[in-house]
Every structure is written in structure tokens, then in C-alpha cells.
């Protein structure tokens, strides 16, 4: 009875995971013959300035994404955990970005950020009328913002659920002792949300590492290579430059970095992943 699930999952998920390791050791253009390459692809990828830059950009993007998303989602989630009716309405509206595909979001922001016909000209704010996506110094920050637009709602949900699990008595006792709002937040809410913070941050990190479709439609990696992060570099190397071997190397680097980060984050905080999952749900 378990066979259909096992076969489907095995063939299209487990086999590819080993397949990618095998493909990193061959030359293949995606159509023609496969020839043995040894570690050629690894050497080529390691010495390629574009891929090295892609790795650096991915790290930068990930750090910026976490720094932007974590505090905003934490504050919003704690706020939305309140039971007032207008907060429920806000929560309903906050969810909306999760319904849009990355392609839809990217297309919308391309139009909205257009220096001549976008929101900047609508509000007549010179600060907003920059060439957001065409300026190599700005494009990555724009991407961080748009990713935040997509995913802060999700992390807000996690924090909202996590905050609602905190026993109310803790706050009542603290109020009795005359503790203020900020004090309660720092000494009750934050420590009680420890596992939620670990879960959410791990998901943010791994998500930012693998983020592809939004950047692909928004900038295609440009201007120049200013937003060519690792997953994008992998796609372009494999399916545009037809070098599947080298793209497989990049895919493996992606998996390795992702696994290392999520293991590291969990070890660092001493939190068990399953424990944190059950806490928030």
C-alpha cells in the first residue's frame, strides 16, 4: 500500500539527489552524449569568478533577508496574536501575498518600480523614482524587499501561532509585579518564543539560499551579474549555457550550504527541530 508513494518519491526525488552527484562528474550539454569528466567541473566552478561571486551574493542576500524579515515578522506576529477583531481583519489581509505566484509578484513589482511610470511618479517622491532594478547597487536590496513582501506574511503566521501558545498566566503575574510592556516582551515573549525563532529563522535562511523564481523574473540575474545568486547561476549554467556538469556542482554546493546552515542553527541554539515544529503548530 505504501508502494506507489515510495516509487514516485524514490524515482523523482531520491534518485535525482544521487543523480546530481553523479552528474557533477561528467560533461553533458543536456541533449548529447555524456562523457566522464572526473573533477573538471569542480575545478572549473571553483575558479569561476561568476560562480564565486554568486556564492558571495547568496550569502549576502540570505543575511539581508533574515535581518529584514525576522524582526518585522516577530513584531507583527506578536501583535496579531491579540484577539481583537481588527487584528483578525489585519491578519486576513496580511495573508494575501501568499496567494500570488512568484512570477506574478515579480511582474507586479517590475511595473510598480518602473522609474517613469511606477509608484514613484504616482506619489511624486523623487526618492522613490530611482532606477530600482537597473542600478547594480540597488537591485539586490529591492530583491530583499520583494522577498520580504512575499514571505513576511508566512513568518508572521508562525510567530502568531507561537505567541498564542504562551500561557497567559505568565503575563498576568508579570503585570502584578508591575512589569511594563517592553519588560514583558523581553522577559516573557522572547524567551518563550525561542523555538519558534529558531524554526522561522532556519526556514528563512534555507528559503533565501534556494530562492530562484522571483529573482529570475525580476532581474534575470542582472544588471550585469549583480543579482546572479547561486540558484540562478545554476539554472543559467545548466539550461542556458548547456553545461549540466558544472550546474550539478553548483546544485550540490547549494544542498551542502543549506544543510550546514540548518544543522548549524539548530546546534547553535540547542533546539530540536521536531520540538520546535510541534510548539508552533
Amino acid at each position: 500500500m505504501a508502494a506507489p508513494a515510495l516509487i514516485l518519491f524514490g524515482v523523482f526525488a531520491i534518485v535525482p539527489l544521487f543523480g546530481v552527484a553523479a552528474l557533477s562528474l561528467v560533461h553533458w550539454d543536456g541533449l548529447g552524449d555524456i562523457t566522464w569528466a572526473g573533477f573538471d567541473n569542480w575545478q572549473a566552478a571553483a575558479s569561476d569568478p561568476v560562480s564565486r561571486n554568486a556564492l558571495w551574493l547568496t550569502v549576502k542576500l540570505t543575511v539581508l533577508c533574515v535581518l529584514f524579515q525576522a524582526p518585522v515578522s516577530l513584531l507583527l506576529g506578536v501583535f496579531l496574536a491579540g484577539r481583537q477583531r481588527y487584528r483578525a481583519l489585519l491578519a486576513t489581509l496580511f495573508f494575501l501575498p501568499l496567494l500570488f505566484s512568484s512570477a506574478a509578484v515579480a511582474i507586479t513589482f517590475t511595473a510598480l518600480l518602473d522609474p517613469n511610470f511606477g509608484a514613484g511618479s504616482a506619489l511624486d517622491l523623487p526618492l522613490l523614482t530611482q532606477n530600482w532594478l537597473g542600478d547594480p547597487d540597488l537591485a539586490l536590496y529591492v530583491i530583499v524587499f520583494v522577498i520580504g513582501w512575499c514571505f513576511i506574511p508566512f513568518h508572521t503566521l508562525i510567530y502568531q501561532a507561537g505567541t498564542r501558545q504562551i500561557p497567559r498566566e505568565l503575563y498576568e503575574a508579570a503585570r502584578m509585579d508591575g512589569a511594563g510592556t517592553v519588560h514583558q516582551f523581553l522577559h516573557i515573549t522572547l524567551p518563550m518564543l525561542k523555538y519558534t525563532i529558531v524554526t522561522s529563522t532556519t526556514l528563512m535562511t534555507v528559503g533565501s539560499l534556494t530562492y530562484f523564481d522571483l529573482i529570475f523574473v525580476l532581474t534575470g540575474g542582472g544588471p550585469g551579474n549583480a543579482t546572479r545568486v547561486l540558484p540562478l547561476d545554476m539554472y543559467l549554467t545548466g539550461f542556458r549555457s548547456y553545461d549540466m556538469g558544472r550546474a550539478s556542482v553548483l546544485a550540490l554546493v547549494l544542498v551542502a550550504v543549506g544543510l550546514a546552515v540548518s544543522l548549524g542553527l539548530n546546534r547553535l541554539t540547542g533546539a530540536n527541530r521536531m520540538e520546535s515544529q510541534s510548539e508552533g503548530s
Partner: peptide, 24 residues
């Protein structure tokens, strides 16, 4: 063990498997 494999499977990013999936 089936359950454990599923837990591991959640962590596989699509991006990492896309080239072999294309080949298949």
C-alpha cells in the same frame, strides 16, 4: 523508516534535484 525518509525528504530543495529530474 518510511516515516524517517519522509522527514528527510522535506528538506530536499527542488533546485538541487532539477537537473537529474530533467534528465529523467
Amino acid at each position: 523508516n518510511l516515516f524517517r525518509v519522509a522527514l528527510l525528504g522535506i528538506a530536499i530543495p527542488i533546485q538541487a534535484a532539477i537537473i537529474p529530474v530533467y534528465y529523467l
